[in-house]
């Protein structure tokens, strides 16, 4: 009995301690980024100023004055919101069809969709750039929205599919008996019942879009450049301006961190694919 009691006591202490350590390890870079953003570029690289320095907002004013932060931010918002909406517009009907009218190939199609996420992006980089250029859509918001939509479709369909599968088919069939059209089924039954799942999916896709750098940096130069490009742009040839870079990064991830904070519950549900209720 004593052993049992001790083990539970141990795990009561050990697990939270472990959780805190892991959380701090994950949190530290973010903290350090915000911390550094209040140092001048010169101070940021000097060890003697590691913790003692004169805080400054110079990096932030510099960013809005010289770098046109708001243009990048506007592009980020427009492309992320549009891509998320477009992604839902395609994935909701798709997941609906696969969840309620599966065919023999449905499982294979789902696997195939997921497999596209395993293709290294670099493998299709140049074809994509050539195509974008020859179609005259290079460095437009349109191409960014298109690419963001496409790369996130598989995950959106997977998530929605798992949520929709939780809805009893009987309810959809009762709706059919009662005179619902296909669109009516989506509007009257599917969306109200899977609202939480759809919101989680939208949130996650939005975050993925916002954070996307590989494609946005390479498919834009100026007009459609997003915050990712802004961060990337501060990696100047003459060396890294850590202060400035930190400020830009903070300003780029800030909105998404705040959004994530408010939607924690939805996000956790989304990431566990509805396993946690």
């Amino acid at each position: 009995m004593a052993i049992v009691a001790e083990t539970t006591k141990f795990s009561k202490v050990a697990w939270p301690v472990l959780a805190w350590i892991v959380a701090l390890v994950f949190f530290f870079p973010i903290f350090w980024m915000v911390f550094t953003s209040f140092k001048t570029d010169a101070d940021a690289v000097k060890p003697e100023f590691l913790f003692r320095f004169t805080p400054t907002l110079e990096n932030y004013t510099n960013m809005t004055d010289n770098y046109d932060y708001w243009r990048f931010a506007t592009n980020s918002i427009i492309t992320s919101v549009s891509a998320t909406l477009l992604c839902l517009f395609v994935s909701v009907p798709c997941a609906y069809a696969m969840a309620f009218n599966p065919s023999r190939g449905t499982k294979d199609i789902l696997m195939w969709m997921l497999s596209t996420k395993m293709l290294p992006a670099a493998a299709v980089l140049y074809p994509m750039i050539f195509m974008a250029k020859s179609l005259g859509i290079y460095d437009t918001r349109f191409v960014v929205i298109l690419v963001l939509t496409l790369i996130n479709l598989p995950i959106a369909i997977w998530m929605l599919f798992t949520y929709f599968k939780d809805i009893p088919k009987d309810i959809i069939e009762a709706g059919q008996m009662d005179g619902l059209t296909t669109w009516g089924e989506v509007k009257e039954i599917l969306v109200p019942l899977a609202w939480g799942g759809i919101a989680s999916t939208a949130l996650l896709i939005f975050i993925f879009c916002w954070n996307e750098a590989y494609w946005t940096v390479r498919l834009t130069t100026f007009n459609a450049a997003t915050l990712s490009t802004l961060i990337e742009g501060n990696r100047a040839p003459e060396g890294l301006f850590f202060g400035r870079l930190s400020a830009v990064s903070t300003a780029a991830v800030g909105p998404i961190v705040v959004l994530g904070w408010f939607c924690q519950k939805q996000l956790v549900q989304g990431l566990t694919f509805g396993a946690v209720k």
Partner: peptide, 9 residues
């Protein structure tokens, strides 16, 4: 239906 299939919302 056996499951009643009411609209839960």
């Amino acid at each position: 239906f056996q499951s009643y299939a009411l609209y839960p919302h």
